[in-house]
Write a protein that binds this DNA or RNA. Structure first.
Lengths: 162, 162
DNA sequence: GCAGACGTTGCGCTTTGCGTACCGATACCC
DNA sequence: GGGTATCGGTACGCAAAGCGCAACGTCTGC
């Protein structure tokens, strides 16, 4: 179902200490060599590679190049709070299909969904918001235009045990 | 100022077509070899490597392992809308220093800052929100607890020219 | 026209990725 | 208990990739 090449969306997963250590190593440096990670963890390179392949295949981990879109000419990013009438999960599906949508979360609170959009300019942003509002089940939207991205981190401290 | 290893936060940057193509290639696959990218773009491997080093050094691009924290045992993620009294930029700085804070944006709208936090459990989340509210310049917070992460993408379509 | 700076290229040396075969542990069945 | 199928880790060899360096071309300023 999930398109590999699109972040890491796994339902849930059981990782042992070695998996966690590999994930943490790659969060710190996505291009670290398997041999280097293996040396640091005291296992064979093939083991790290096997684990990596499995985690990657399971959608738990994805190594990607990340940027600050605002610095690369996408001059109109925004977080859009969406209120839905039907089940948020269902409404989120067509939303997630839009190329300009980079992040979708089902949340509890004032909104039902938070949707991050990345657009070239304000005209483009307006167009995408109109597309969002036209989607079945979308009752209203609330837009927070990004002025400046201050922090973007993918390391979350020591991964919790299970 | 910026800690390398923490996403990509560049003020602004001028990228030519080759830079953009390299960034796009790495957004699609962060572990693609420089030689492979070079072949696809019709340049030498060393060129891709030089460009990559420069982009990386400039904080424009960062290759990292990304996960879905909710699937890895972080059971309490949230987006926190923060209203500030002073300059949002200034208030954002101590916020960005918290390990549990993974994302900080200055926005226009109902809030001044959007802050994403990644916590082990609800008790941990409560603790972090209290820390946020104790920060100088934070007037109020509004919390959206994550129920499910549906999409997480780092490809934003063709990068705009400059 | 010349000198300096800068980015690209080609080349060798070292290191890594990857396929494969081997080995030990665990579980299952008769 | 013995046999055996499965699974993950390890060792190894080869092709490929990363990396440092020297050489080359281009552009700029004097």
């Amino acid at each position: 179902m999930n398109d590999r090449r699109r972040g890491a969306i796994a339902g849930s997963a059981v990782l042992d200490d070695l998996d966690r250590a590999i994930v943490e190593a790659l969060q710190a440096d996505g291009r670290a060599s398997f041999r280097e990670i293996a040396r640091a963890l005291g296992v064979a390179e093939g083991t790290v590679r096997n684990r990596y392949d499995r985690l990657s295949e399971a959608g738990v981990l994805d190594v990607v190049g990340v940027t600050n879109p605002l610095a690369l000419g996408f001059d109109a990013m925004a977080m859009v709070g969406v209120t839905t009438s039907g089940r948020p999960q269902v409404v989120s599906e067509p939303i997630a299909e839009l190329t300009e949508v980079s992040y979708v979360v089902i949340v509890a609170g004032q909104f039902d969904l938070l949707v991050e959009v990345v657009c070239r300019d304000h005209a483009h942003l307006l167009e995408i918001i109109e597309q969002l509002r036209a989607i079945d089940g979308v009752v209203s939207t609330d837009t927070f235009v990004y002025l400046k991205l201050t922090k973007q981190s993918f390391e979350h401290g020591r991964l919790p045990g299970r």
